[in-house]
């Protein structure tokens, strides 16, 4: 355990330069805008010079860029900076929830948790459809199913997410009206941050069902690319382990097929987990489009809005969070290796 702790600390320290790099990069991009952000924040052409000047003072826009950057990062650290667009503190918007959301009504959940929930749903699709599909196609190698899965994987990575979204909306909403596209019910109390889990913990089952009903389709759309990718990697690595000597020896010592499959699957898990980790990042990245298609007030849309309105404090906050989650996902993958494979040492 001491080893794990030291490993974690070492890895978390390496996060810092990357986080600084990422935010600095976005900051520089934001500063490439020739337009005056203060004017845009104050309301455009008609804004009074006094208001613009006050905003300049508030965000240190008259100072050199590095002062601005340090100011921004400091304020982000203490959650003391307000988005000039939503007029909420940035971490309130993203994480803690606000008394008044964008739409006016308050929310206990930050935008991040809405996206996280969507991503987790999509992740479930990937794991529970992708992996079994991959195993089946490995066991029935070169069969019709196998080539279907292979093609499906290619179709998956070729499908425009927004188009798939509209196709399903057309089928399930326009034609048959079996899904809802508006509203986002919240449980009465925030516990874990994931709405469904909170609703279930509170025993508010109908709210949980509403949330699931609302997210089932968007999550499928978001996860669609991943399902094929995971099915394919599962197939290939399962095939590789299925031909390994220890499986041959397993047969020779008379193990049942189910047991042999357990051995093969566990050994195939390392590449699968690696790709799952990458997929998690991919899902976060795909969120803006899916959220736009289905009108989900998540973090992806928040950031797209921030970019459109030159709201770069919010943008940098969001990017910081994205990068952090991304790196955490990688870290979890590395820790998972050690649980799967006793040969892995920190």
């Amino acid at each position: 355990m001491a080893e794990l702790k030291r490993f974690l600390i070492r890895r978390l320290v390496t996060f810092i330069p990357t986080l600084i790099g990422v935010t600095l990069l976005v900051f520089i991009i934001a500063n490439l805008i020739p337009a005056d952000p203060a004017r845009a924040w104050a309301g455009g052409e008609k804004a009074s010079p006094e208001v613009i000047e006050r905003i300049r003072e508030e965000y240190h826009l008259n100072d050199p860029w590095y002062v601005q950057y340090v100011f921004l990062m400091k304020k982000l650290f203490t959650n003391d900076i307000v988005s000039p667009r939503t007029h909420n503190k940035i971490w309130d918007d993203l994480i803690f929830g606000t008394s008044q959301g964008v739409a006016g009504a308050g929310t206990k959940y930050g935008r991040f948790f809405i996206t996280l929930q969507l991503t987790l749903f999509a992740f479930l699709y990937i794991v529970f459809i992708g992996i079994p599909l991959g195993i089946l196609s490995a066991l029935k190698k070169d069969s019709l199913l196998d080539s279907t899965v292979r093609t499906l994987a290619l179709v998956g990575v070729s499908t425009p997410v927004f188009w798939l979204g509209y196709l399903l909306i057309y089928i399930f909403f326009v034609r048959f009206r079996v899904i809802e596209l508006a509203g986002f019910p919240e449980p009465t109390q925030r516990i874990t941050g994931i709405m469904v889990i909170d609703a279930l913990l509170l025993g508010e089952n109908d709210i949980a069902i509403q949330i699931i009903n609302r997210l089932a389709l968007p999550a499928f759309v978001l996860g669609f690319i991943g399902i094929g990718v995971i099915a394919r990697i599962t197939r290939n690595s399962f095939l590789e382990t299925w031909n390994a000597d220890y499986i041959e020896f397993g047969k020779a010592r008379g193990l049942r097929k189910s047991r042999l499959m357990r051995h093969a699957l566990k050994n195939a898990l390392v590449p699968i987990v690696t790709v799952l980790g990458l997929q998690f990042g991919g899902l976060l990245g795909g969120a803006p489009i899916t959220e736009t298609v289905f009108g989900i007030p998540g973090m992806g849309r928040y950031m797209v809005e921030a970019i459109r309105n030159f709201d770069y404090p919010a943008l940098i906050g969001g990017v910081l969070l994205f990068a952090l989650i991304y790196m955490l996902a990688n870290l979890i993958v590395d820790i998972a290796y050690a649980f799967i494979d006793p040969r892995v040492r920190y």
Binding site: V22, L25, I307, V319, A323
Partner: peptide, 26 residues
Amino acid sequence: MRITDIFLAFPGLILAIAFAATLPDR
């Protein structure tokens, strides 16, 4: 490699949106 790390550490789509939104004037 460190520079590519930074680029790969957050979703390309968001980064591309950020660039695409700020570049047109130039």
